[in-house]
Every structure is written in structure tokens, then in C-alpha cells.
């Protein structure tokens, strides 16, 4: 269970705005996060991952405090080990597809399976600049899954995929999420994109 109760001041075009999130994410659930641009969706994901520090409040994962402002607890992203898919993919330009996954894990079998799931098994030697937008996005998803995380945070993870690829990938990902027993939070602008996939929704802003 991931329990989030945090506050963060955000810079907005009309001054500062307060982002307040209080939500419990059930283990194994998939939650869709929606909201207008600049509302703080990415900031929320980064605060949960430990990449941005909230101003106050707490984040707990299965009764372990990841962040507790009052007690000065703030676990690093390395300690939280969250699978994170960045909106800009954040792929490493110096690494091939396979090296991305090898950087994350030593489990060769798992790497092979992920490559097949993402349809990248024929592109293992390609660097990101030789991949299409859709392939880059799939690689970003696979890299996040490579560490077998218990919590997966995805920031617009399917925006560059065509409809056919998207539905096939989502189906395969659901199987992996279940196997990992992972709780998943997905930021998505497209209302139809995750129909039938997510059980819960969090609207910000």
C-alpha cells in the first residue's frame, strides 16, 4: 500500500500554487492520474520517487516511511527503487537498447523477456537516436520494469505509440504488473487510452 499525504508549493504563471495530495494506492492497483498541464502530475510522481522533496507531509510504502517531514525522513531514489518512465524518456544516448537493460539488471532471462514484450528484440544493438519515437518510449518502459519494481510510475508512457501497438503493449504490461505484484500510477492526458485498464483515478488541479 502506498499512502501519500503531501504538500508542495509549485511555481505557476500567476504566482505560487499549492499542490495537495492525499491518497492511498491499493497494492496491485493501476491508477490513472489526470489534470490540466502544470497542475503538478509529474511533480507528484517525482515526489513519490524521491526525485523532488515535498514541503510537508508523508509518503509511506507498506508501513515504511519514505518521506516524513516531521521526522526528517527522506529516503533517496536509490532506496525507494521505483520504476519510473519519464515523459521525455530520459534514455541514455551512449547506450544501446540492450545496454539500457543491462545497466538496470543482471537478469539475462528477464532482459530477453522484456525485449520481446516491447518488440525490441531485433533492435538490441541500436542506440536511442536510431530508434523511432515509439521504440524509444517502449525502451523507457522496459528499462523501468527491468529492476522489477513494486511501484511503477509512468508519465505519459503511451503518447508516442500507435493504437495497435498501444493495446498490445498494455495487454502484455498488465501481465507483467500482475506478476510483479506492482502498484502502478499512470499519468495520461488521453481519457480513452486506459479504459478498462485502470481501476482508480486521481484528478489533480
Amino acid at each position: 500500500m502506498i499512502a501519500v499525504d503531501i504538500e508542495k508549493k509549485l511555481k505557476a504563471h500567476n504566482g505560487l500554487q499549492m499542490l495537495r495530495i492525499k491518497k492511498v494506492f491499493v497494492p496491485g492497483s493501476i491508477t490513472r492520474i489526470t489534470g490540466p498541464s502544470g497542475a503538478g502530475k509529474t511533480t507528484l510522481l517525482k515526489m513519490i520517487a524521491g526525485l523532488i522533496t515535498p514541503d510537508s507531509g508523508s509518503i509511506k510504502a507498506n508501513s515504511i516511511s519514505w518521506f516524513e517531514a516531521a521526522q526528517n525522513i527522506d529516503l533517496s531514489p536509490q532506496q525507494r527503487r521505483v520504476g519510473f518512465v519519464f515523459q521525455d524518456y530520459a534514455l541514455f544516448p551512449n547506450m544501446t537498447v540492450k545496454q539500457h537493460l543491462e545497466y538496470a539488471t543482471n537478469d539475462a532471462e528477464w532482459i530477453t523477456r522484456l525485449l520481446k514484450t516491447g518488440g525490441l528484440d531485433n533492435f538490441t544493438g541500436h542506440k536511442p537516436n536510431h530508434l523511432s519515437g515509439g521504440q524509444q518510449q517502449r525502451l523507457a518502459i522496459l528499462r523501468a520494469l527491468a529492476i522489477k519494481p513494486k511501484l511503477i510510475l509512468m508519465d505519459e508512457p503511451f503518447s508516442a505509440l500507435d493504437l495497435k501497438m498501444k493495446s498490445a503493449l498494455i495487454k502484455d504490461l498488465q501481465i507483467i504488473f500482475t506478476e510483479l505484484g506492482a502498484t502502478t500510477l499512470i499519468v495520461s492526458h488521453n481519457p480513452q487510452e486506459l479504459d478498462g485498464v485502470t481501476g482508480d483515478e486521481l484528478e489533480i488541479g
Binding site: 517525482k46 531514489p77 527503487r81 530520459a90 534514455l91 529492476i147
Partner: peptide, 11 residues
């Protein structure tokens, strides 16, 4: 985000 991605992988 490059550093951040690496940190989330435990590096």
C-alpha cells in the same frame, strides 16, 4: 532526467 533515471535504477 538522465541522472534521475539512473538514480531510480538504484545507481
Amino acid at each position: 532526467s538522465l541522472s534521475q533515471a539512473s538514480y531510480t535504477l538504484g545507481k
